[in-house]
C-alpha cells in the first residue's frame, strides 16, 4: 500500500476545513463577480443577454412615468433604497457580517422589469463607489443579480399570491429563492468561464457552488427573514403606498 507520499488524507481535510472556516469569516458581500474575472467573450455574451430585459424595463418605466410625473423621483429613490439595503450589514450565524442583495424585495415592490433597470444602475454605483463588481463583468452581474434573481422572486411572489399562500411565506420564499437562484447563476457563469481542464463544466459548477455555499446559503436565509420583517412593517404602516405600487 504505497500511495504517493504527497497524497495524504489529513492534508486535504485540513485544506477543506480551512476553506470552509475562512471563507465565511471574511466579510462577504453579495455575489459580485470581480472585475477581470471573466474572459472577453463571456463579458459580451452576458451583456447582450441583458439587453432585452433592460429594454423591457425601460419601456415599463417610461409608461409609468407618463401616467404619473412623480414616478421618476420615486424610481430614483427606489434605486437608492436598493443600494442602501445592499450595503446594510446583516449579522450572520457564523459571526461575520454579510450584505443582502435587496433585489428580491425590490422585485416584489417595484416589479421585475423595473427592478432589472434599477439593478444595473445600482451595480454601476457599487462598482464605482464600493469596488464591488466591475465594468467588464457588469453584464454577467446584471444578468444574475438584477435579472435572474428578481424575475424568479417576482414570479414566486405572484404565484404565492394567486395560490393564497400567507404573504409572509410568499415574501420569504421570493427573497430566499431569488437569492439562491442568483448564486446558482453566478456559479454557472464562473464555471462556464473557468471549466475544469480534466473534468469539464459540471465538475466545475459543483466546485463553484460548493465554495460559495457556506456564505451564500446563510445570506439567502437571512435576506428572506429580513425581507419579511421589512414587508410586515410596510404592510402595517403604509397600505396606501403599497397599493400605489400595486403590491397588495
Amino acid at each position: 500500500m504505497l500511495v504517493n507520499k504527497k497524497c495524504d488524507k489529513v492534508k486535504i481535510l485540513v485544506a477543506v476545513l480551512s476553506v470552509l472556516l475562512v471563507v465565511p469569516a471574511l466579510n462577504a458581500s453579495a455575489m459580485h463577480i470581480m472585475e477581470g474575472y471573466l474572459p472577453v467573450g463571456y463579458c459580451i455574451l452576458w451583456g447582450v443577454l441583458c439587453v432585452p430585459f433592460l429594454i423591457w424595463g425601460g419601456i415599463d418605466m417610461k409608461k409609468q412615468m407618463k401616467s404619473d410625473g412623480r414616478t421618476k423621483i420615486l424610481l430614483a429613490l427606489s434605486g437608492a433604497f436598493v443600494f442602501i439595503i445592499s450595503s446594510l450589514k446583516i449579522p450572520s450565524v457564523t459571526g461575520s457580517c454579510s450584505h443582502p442583495t435587496g433585489t428580491g424585495l425590490g422585485a416584489v415592490l417595484f416589479g421585475a422589469p423595473v427592478m432589472s433597470l434599477l439593478g444595473i444602475i445600482v451595480l454601476i454605483f457599487q462598482a464605482l463607489l464600493l469596488a464591488h463588481g466591475g465594468f467588464t463583468t457588469l453584464g454577467a452581474n446584471t444578468f444574475s443579480m438584477a435579472i435572474a434573481g428578481p424575475f424568479l422572486s417576482y414570479g414566486i411572489y405572484r404565484l404565492c399570491k394567486k395560490m393564497n399562500v400567507n404573504k409572509a411565506v410568499g415574501v420569504f420564499l421570493a427573497a430566499t429563492l431569488g437569492d439562491l437562484f442568483t448564486y446558482v447563476i453566478t456559479s454557472v457563469q464562473l464555471a462556464l468561464a473557468h471549466p475544469d481542464a480534466a473534468n469539464g463544466f459540471m465538475f466545475s459548477l459543483v466546485k463553484f457552488m460548493g465554495i460559495f455555499a457556506p456564505t451564500q446559503v446563510p445570506i439567502a436565509i437571512a435576506e428572506g427573514i429580513l425581507s419579511v420583517i421589512i414587508f410586515n412593517v410596510l404592510e402595517a404602516s403604509c397600505q396606501k403606498e403599497l397599493q400605489r405600487l400595486s403590491v397588495i
Binding site: R70, I73, L74, A76, L77, S78, A80, F81, I84, I85, L88, I90, P91, L109, A222, I225, L226, V228, I229, I230, F231, N232, V233, L234, S237, C238, E241
Partner: peptide, 19 residues
C-alpha cells in the same frame, strides 16, 4: 434582525415621502 428590518422599512417610508 428586528432593528435592521425596522430600519429598512422606515427608510422606505422615508424615501416615499421624500419623493
Amino acid at each position: 434582525y428586528k432593528s435592521t428590518g425596522a430600519l429598512a422599512a422606515n427608510l422606505f417610508i422615508n424615501a416615499f415621502e421624500r419623493a
